[in-house]
Design a protein around this nucleic acid. Structure first.
Length: 423
RNA sequence: GGAGGAAUGGCAGAGUGGUCGAAUGCGGCAGUCUUGAAAACUGUUGAGGGUCACACCUCCGGGGGUUCGAAUCCCUCUUCCUCCGCCA
């Protein structure tokens, strides 16, 4: 969520920047300012009332102590009205604070200046492309056909035991999954990220912390009996590790990597584009998360992009990098680069990584701060990215590495797989 | 799942109705001493709201209550510990 102080100071800038997301935030921002003013006015009145009654209480205490019970009882009568007032004011304050909070939750992050304006993915800006798109044999198959042909992923079996979008990986398919996870974790660890394992279920506070709640409530699986959510990404538990922390400047940079399954309801996604591994309810992902000093966060973002590039280079997959336009940018992000691998057999680009800087948007909800050189608390910047998401990398490998004799395993993965070919 | 105990500042730990945002120790920061470091000594050190700055207000796991007044009493929830049961 945006910082109140920033909205107060730079209202016009914020409204203007948000037009890149094709939203007119004027009404929301005005509402925030109105509620903020109301909140502060109420707070002041409450404070005054409390101060008065505190003073009286102190006086009463003194009187009792010095044996002037009669005078004390006289004063007691005066406190009744104050008590009533402060109760009323306290309720008003809570109501206004909640209202203010709710409006603030509705305002997305302010896009970075480099974010292009635009409505849809068509308007995303390609900033980099690398790798040769292979020429495949004439009867090249999409990955779901390959998965069936070599019996490495069974979608129907997943339907049987759970439902659509929950594939079962078998034999070399399962082994390749495990190989990718290990390979990604190793690469991330080498780059200075600390490997951690986190719970796959989180509580409501964590959902709010990183901004999945209340914005994307319907996209997460919710376990009603225990009021827990299945994580849609490791970003949620990993970033929330730091919730409420006040760091010291020398703690920076904080770098974590974690493998987790990810669960997404994907309500409203149907059709040809969701075939095979393209869109699943459960998939595996290795995530990288960084917490940075504000002055360093964009450098860190570039570093994360460079890191993911390096992995794709090693895998020898053709990919491109897009800078997301305002309309396609996630609610909480200030700047996002999407990585897409070219899926030759499907003749389309598949998103395999999304690397974002959230600036203080998440930190504000998380109350994730650090002490600056003057000893004042400041919000840190949070970033995260996939490094990498498994299913589409797998799809890319299957499709781009297919040969008439089978599917070749990328060289760097052979030591992890223990085989060179799926046939 | 059943029975009992507990939750206080970065950590440890006092505080059982008034002047307590909270003793003390450790840790952190600054300084003195030192060629430097360590030790010792001195000072300082929770968070948030509010203000030009003060004042002032809130916070002792969360929520509610009793009281003129609550860290302290009551209710409730959550978490942790011990014992029993179950169990990978």
């Amino acid at each position: 969520m945006l910082q109140l102080q920033v909205i107060r100071d730079r209202k016009e800038d914020i409204i203007r920047a948000l037009t890149k997301r094709n939203i007119d935030a004027t009404a929301l921002v005005e509402n925030v300012l109105r509620l903020d003013e109301k909140r502060r006015a109420t707070q002041t009145r409450l404070d005054t009332t409390l101060a008065e009654s505190n003073a009286l209480s102190k006086e009463i205490g003194m009187l009792f102590k010095t044996g002037k019970a009669q005078e004390a009882n006289l004063l007691k009568e005066k406190t009744g009205q104050l008590k009533e007032d402060s109760k009323k004011l306290g309720e008003d304050l809570n109501t206004t604070t909640d209202e203010l909070q709710n409006v603030l939750y509705q305002i997305p992050n302010v896009p970075h200046e480099s974010v292009p304006a635009g409505n849809t993915e068509e308007d995303n800006e390609e900033v980099f492309q690398e790798g040769d798109i292979p020429t495949l044999q004439t009867n090249a198959l999409p990955h779901w056909e390959l998965a069936k042909k070599y019996d490495i992923i069974d979608f129907e079996l997943g339907v049987k035991i759970t439902g659509a979008g929950f594939p079962v990986y078998k034999g070399k398919g399962a082994r390749l999954q495990r190989a990718l996870i290990s390979y990604f974790l190793d690469k991330n660890t080498e780059a200075g990220y600390t490997e951690i394992q986190v719970p796959h279920l989180v509580n409501e506070a964590s959902g709010y912390g990183t901004g999945q709640l209340p914005d994307k409530e319907g996209q997460m699986y919710h376990i009603a009996a225990d009021d827990l959510y299945l994580i849609p990404t490791a970003e949620v538990p990993v970033t929330n590790l730091l919730r409420g922390e006040i760091l010291s400047q020398k703690d920076f940079p904080l770098r974590y990597t974690a493998y987790t399954p990810c669960f997404r309801r994907e309500a409203g996604s149907y059709g040809a584009h969701v075939r095979g591994l393209n869109r699943l309810h459960q998939f595996d992902k290795v995530e990288i998360v960084r917490v940075e000093h504000p002055t360093n966060s964009y450098e860190a973002l570039d570093g994360m992009v460079a890191h993911v590039k390096q992995i794709l280079r090693e895998l020898k997959l053709p990919y491109r990098i897009l800078r997301l336009c305002g309309g396609d940018l996630g609610f909480t992000s200030a700047l996002t680069y999407d990585f897409e691998v070219f899926s030759t057999a499907q003749d389309r680009w598949l998103e395999i990584s999304s690397v974002s800087n959230f600036e203080t948007y998440q930190a504000n909800r998380l109350k994730l701060r650090y002490k600056d050189e003057n000893g004042k608390s400041q919000l840190a910047h949070t970033l995260n990215g996939s490094s990498l998401a498994l299913p589409r990398v797998l799809a890319g490998i299957l499709e781009n590495y297919q040969t008439p004799d089978g599917i070749q395993i990328p060289e760097v993965l052979v030591p992890y797989c223990g085989f060179e070919m799926i046939n």
